[in-house]
Write a protein that binds this DNA or RNA. Structure first.
Length: 180
DNA sequence: GATAAGATGTTA
DNA sequence: AACATCTTATCA
């Protein structure tokens, strides 16, 4: 299966967020590979008030300005991590939050951003990792092609600003989307 | 079913 | 003080 490369991520964030649906997320840990199909994403861009990079570079948001295909992992609510993939050219902030995957190999309980990070052992040490390089232990592959009409577009979840941006995408009727 | 509250630590 | 969350408790 084709490894997603820098050119894939070096595009408009919203386009990447939709194209990531149906792709396979892989995590190698202790010789074991955990995999899931991405079924839910959200887009965040530099001029988006809900984005961590909205107010410019900070120690945390600096990762969002790195080259496309960089992992952006941050700690939230005292006990969870969220996993994003940086998009757009280097020095331009943008990222896609992976909100849910459909379990493939020995995975379960991955229907939410905090849960999938816990189940796939995605920790802060992966912040800044190169997702276009398998050696990072975290990479993505092209898998299912999702038809345009099977992508549902809604507003994003869990934020207080820019609540009207229609930048959450998920696969219609998929059982592993968060909430419901 | 629904809604409320509690856990927990980093961030600026 | 807020936070790109999730679990458990307490209603009905």
């Amino acid at each position: 299966m084709g490894l997603l490369d820098k050119d894939f991520y070096n595009r408009d964030t919203v386009v990447v967020a939709k194209d990531l649906l149906g792709c396979k997320l892989n995590r190698q840990v202790e010789g074991q590979v955990l995999s899931g199909i991405i079924v839910e994403t959200e887009a965040y861009t530099q001029d988006d008030p809900a984005c961590h990079a909205f107010k410019g570079k900070t120690p945390r948001s600096i990762t969002l300005f790195k080259q496309p295909g960089t992992a952006y992992v941050y700690f939230i609510y005292g006990m969870y991590h969220c996993f994003n993939i940086v998009t757009e050219p280097e020095n331009m902030a943008g990222a896609v939050l992976i909100r849910a995957v459909e379990p493939v190999s020995p995975l379960k309980n991955t229907n939410g951003p905090g849960k999938l990070c816990r189940e796939m052992n995605i920790l802060k040490e992966l912040n800044g990792a190169d997702v276009t390089d398998k050696n990072s232990g975290l990479w993505l592959e092209k898998c299912d092609d999702i038809s345009h009409k099977d992508i549902v577009t809604t507003t994003r979840i869990g934020i207080k600003t820019a609540v009207d941006y229609p930048w959450r995408f998920y696969i219609r009727d998929n059982l592993f989307v968060s909430k419901k």
